[in-house]
Design a protein around this nucleic acid. Structure first.
Lengths: 341, 341
DNA sequence: TCAAGTTTTGAAAGCGCTTTCATATGCGCC
DNA sequence: GGCGCATATGAAAGCGCTTTCAAAACTTGA
């Protein structure tokens, strides 16, 4: 059975025609009274609205969309729903867009490019008002699809030169550089970086590259880099042990995720290391937990919810003002300085 | 401008009729060749599929849905996207449903019942294949809407006697009871509970009630209950101080959230209390962090992702087997015993 | 070979709205 | 009071597909 099968037949709902009959007007008037009340006389508008309310009329958006050539749907594709960064972005987006009558169609691809393309294809066939996709790295097919899409397309989270249409994000490389620069400013000589260097997460890789680049540039040496297989606490603890073994006099470590950093802080406490006196620790993400560790974790904060808000507002603007242009905005990252570094 | 406005005119896409012309068949045959290939002769099917591929034809789902009377859309309403429990549920649901060609329409109401009703109304007007809503507590309007919905309706996360249609969840009260029972079994006499007793979160309240009920029943005394205004680390630390002040010989504390518990563990470490020797701590949620604290946190695990999987499978079953019945399933909670209690 | 199936195919009727276009209605003014 | 204009309303034509129904094309068995 396919999704559009008819086997669960719908008891017929109230249709516009019925409202029209009850209100004693034509369906056209009902449509106008409901969608653009200002074009209908006071008297009829009241009659129609009352009839609609009395019958419990809910317009069929499918029909409306077919006739209207565009749906109040915004398709959003993220790698994962459980990643709290994307969740924060989606949270802001839904809140803003829902208030304007749009609905979010959400798909997740788990970093699988083929799945991303399938979802993008499926979303396009809904004639959405806008399409939002995470990142700048897509299959040829996805790129073709998005380039040809008859609606605004936003690539979010990553910033670089030439988005397909609009780009709203920040530079992960710059986030890494910021950490490197901060360590240099603090005069830390022996530093290290912990992150998923080998995985398929290009964002994490960009951060570690930015860090290494800046350390090399400012301190004239290569930082020690340790790979983390996951972003969980235990992995941070393991990375700390590994780093101290390979470079016992390490003075500061930047982590590619707050959880890794917190794990390392737990481990450091176990080892009797004082933070930040013996070892400075810098996180990335600014999760809720960061403000509440002991000592509170200094961290680099990506603009997760700002991205959601900016994307939503850009879309609303593009849809409201037909001549509005695409944009390419870098929302930047901030270093939240607490006590751990 | 309204969402269905026409001001951003779509460059006309390839339509079924065009595929039909190129393949030299009728539109009806194209429709069949694409949606139910087994009803079309080998020869024509190949011709149609080739023509469709060559033209890059993507069916217009809006039109298909209008004609087919049902959309491959599943509407899901959750209180919050950033809550990792619901995120885990949604994650499983999308993964399973996307694989079968369904798309998720996701709405969040931030615990605002009126907003919930608005979203439910909006979702109904899409003629979804199924509707999923979090919890059992809705406005009259929402209840009416869901009862009349011409599709399967699942109320998830909470379990009780009479769901409107299908219910898939667990009992928060039972989760609280489980904690109380565990403490009694361990022979802890002076116990306490920390949770959002006063907030609008009925689930948290049910857990604290279950806990109190069981302690009263098994230990013959009322536990000390402390309110937590948020679910963050700092609040757990504050609650711990408050409890030890009011009841210095407290032997075990159950928390309504892992983060609160972790915060309390940090604070206990600062105060020089040993866990679990001096004080046993039990969390709720089984977040990733729980397995990695020091000592690892014992906690009660709600079936977050199991709910997602069960809901998705129930929906697929209901849609595939027209005579399938609604269900009411309690997925239960588990006590994950680690070292903190 | 022909009648009686059986399977494939196509024509056409919607699905429930929106929107255009034409008609009706009301208004101000000479 | 009648003319022209602006505004309010209705009729009707789709939007692009699915599905029913009937006709056409094949089978099969006698």
């Amino acid at each position: 059975m396919t999704p559009t099968d008819r086997s669960h037949p719908a008891p017929r709902r109230v249709r516009m025609e019925e409202v029209a009959r009850v209100a004693g007007v034509s369906p056209a008037t009902v449509s106008r009274a409901l969608k653009s009340p200002e074009t209908v006389s006071e008297r009829l508008r009241a009659r129609v609205q009352e009839a609609a309310a009395r019958l419990g009329y809910a317009p069929n958006r499918i029909a409306g969309s077919l006739a209207g050539a565009r749906t109040p749907l915004v398709g959003v594709i993220v790698p994962s729903l459980t990643n709290s960064f994307f969740a924060a972005t989606l949270d802001r987006m839904t809140t803003i867009l829902e208030a304007e009558g749009y609905q979010l169609l959400i798909g997740q691809h788990a970093y699988d490019a083929a799945r991303e393309e399938r979802i993008a294809t499926a979303f396009c066939s809904w004639n959405p008002s806008a399409l939002v996709i995470t990142g700048r790295d897509h299959t040829r097919g996805t790129v073709g699809l998005l380039s040809a899409a008859p609606c605004p397309v936003v690539e979010m989270w990553d910033h670089d030169d030439r988005p397909l249409d609009t780009g709203i994000g920040f530079s992960n490389r710059e986030a890494g550089r910021l950490a490197g620069r901060y360590f240099a400013e603090q005069g830390f000589d022996k530093v290290a970086y912990v992150g998923a260097i080998l995985g398929q997460d290009a964002r994490a890789r960009a951060r570690s590259q930015g860090f290494a680049e800046q350390v090399r540039h400012l301190a004239g040496q290569d930082p020690l880099i340790a790979d983390a297989k996951s972003r969980e606490l235990g992995e941070g603890a393991a990375a700390l042990r590994q780093i101290l073994q390979r470079q016992p006099d390490t003075r500061a470590i930047a982590f590619s995720g707050d959880m890794l950093a917190v794990g390392a802080m737990f481990e450091a406490a176990r080892m009797g290391l004082r933070i930040p006196q013996d070892l400075a620790i810098l996180g990335y993400g600014d999760l809720d937990i960061a403000a509440h560790t002991n000592p509170p974790l200094s961290t680099i904060r990506p603009p997760h919810d700002e991205i959601g808000a900016a994307v939503a507002r850009h879309i609303l603007h593009r849809l409201a003002v037909p001549e509005a242009q695409s944009e390419n905005v870098d929302l930047g990252v901030r270093l939240i300085r607490r006590l751990s570094a």
